[in-house]
């Protein structure tokens, strides 16, 4: 067995890449920060230094698990869902809009309905790309991205518009959802809440579905070799559409959870980066749902670490994105010295 085919070896390869990435982070911090020791402390200790920090870290890890799972599902089936940003955002809008019209007496039922609305909104966006692919052979890499890019300004317009916009707020945001539909928080005032914990069972369920059922087998075959899948009689139409719909739906769920659990209203740009980071998680996890949870935790840690460094005044704001990009670059590398990682 060569390195490419041995899962253990490829896991070690990921760790090597991670080591290099962290090494680069250390170098960047040391060189660019006015206080390297403080910066390093902020980087490694910041994300876990308090209940608040833990809450934010967990919340982000779980959110990224959802979007990472969403991206993994699509990639695993050989489809490219680049529309995570728009699907998440639209899911948030759908959830919030529903809470504004449901009778308050619904309570938890209302929360579930709103979450479902978020899922449907995302699934529709994703599924639309899937349908375009089946019907017109439209490249889903482009359609998911374009649909998402046009969904964002649409949501921006709707969320501040009549009926939904919060005229009394100094922020660009929608009216808040009725308190009956607020998902209880955890480790206040962090972003964590009870609802996001559902990410764990969802990831586990999909991991089982993808790896241990006939449906999952066919999905993975589509991702491995589409020609073979077709030759073997697998319906390439359904297995193109369903993964994209599911992927969109999971993104939408993440958006809905973010709205109902953290801010309780739709704040402009609240989900910025969730979609793209989800793709990063999927890349680190090599599209395997089992690896999504650790990969999301890792990425969340890196993200929080970067923010912690900036927040402690140890790093210029503009460079945090560069910093993250460098780390991602290493982590998603597949070759080192020409040998596969």
């Amino acid at each position: 067995m060569n390195r490419r085919t041995n899962p253990l070896a490829s896991g070690i390869g990921t760790l090597v890449a991670l080591g290099l990435a962290l090494g680069l982070a250390v170098v960047l911090l040391a060189v660019l920060s006015p206080n390297p020791a403080g910066a390093l402390r902020a980087f490694f200790w910041g994300p876990v230094s308090s209940g608040l920090a833990w809450g934010n870290l967990l919340n982000q890890a779980l959110l990224l698990s959802l979007t990472g799972l969403a991206a993994s599902l699509a990639f695993g089936a050989g489809a490219f869902n680049l529309g995570g940003e728009g699907q998440t955002y639209t899911g948030g809008l759908a959830a919030l809009a529903l809470t504004l019209v449901l009778p308050v007496a619904w309570g938890w039922g209302g929360i579930l309905a709103a979450l479902l609305a978020g899922v449907m909104a995302g699934a529709l966006l994703g599924g639309l790309s899937g349908w375009l692919k089946v019907r017109f052979e439209a490249d889903e890499m482009i359609t998911t991205f374009l649909l998402s890019a046009s969904a964002v300004p649409f949501v921006n317009a709707v969320m501040t518009g009549p009926g939904i916009g919060a005229a009394q707020s100094m922020l660009i945001q929608s009216r808040p959802a009725p308190e009956a539909f607020w998902i209880p928080g955890l480790l206040a005032p962090s972003n964590l809440h009870v609802g996001i914990l559902v990410a764990v069972p969802i990831v586990v369920v999909f991991a089982v579905l993808v790896n241990h059922t006939p449906w999952g087998y066919r999905l993975r075959l589509m991702g491995r070799n589409r020609d073979f899948a077709r030759y073997a009689g697998i319906s390439t139409g359904i297995y193109a559409l369903v993964p994209l719909g599911l992927s969109g739906g999971l993104h939408g769920l993440a958006g809905a959870l973010g709205v109902l659990g953290t801010q309780h209203s739709l704040v402009q740009g609240f989900s910025a980066g969730w979609g793209w980071n989800g793709i990063a998680v999927a890349l680190i996890a090599r599209s395997n749902p089992w690896a999504v949870l650790p990969a999301a935790a890792l990425l969340a840690f890196l993200d929080q670490a970067g923010r912690s460094v900036v927040l402690q005044g140890q790093f210029p704001f503009q460079l945090s994105a560069l910093f993250q990009a460098c780390i991602l670059f290493f982590i998603t590398a597949r070759r080192l010295h020409g040998r596969p990682l």
């Binding site: 059922t213 006939p214 087998y217 066919r218 993975r220 075959l221 070799n225 073979f228």
Partner: peptide, 26 residues
């Protein structure tokens, strides 16, 4: 005719997955 990077076992079961599964699980 095959999925080259999949396992041998995966390559021989495409027509049998339904039958090989018990209670939905493979």
């Amino acid at each position: 005719g095959s999925s080259p990077h999949s396992q041998l076992a995966s390559n021989v079961i495409p027509y049998r997955v339904g039958q090989l599964a018990r209670r939905g699980l493979l």
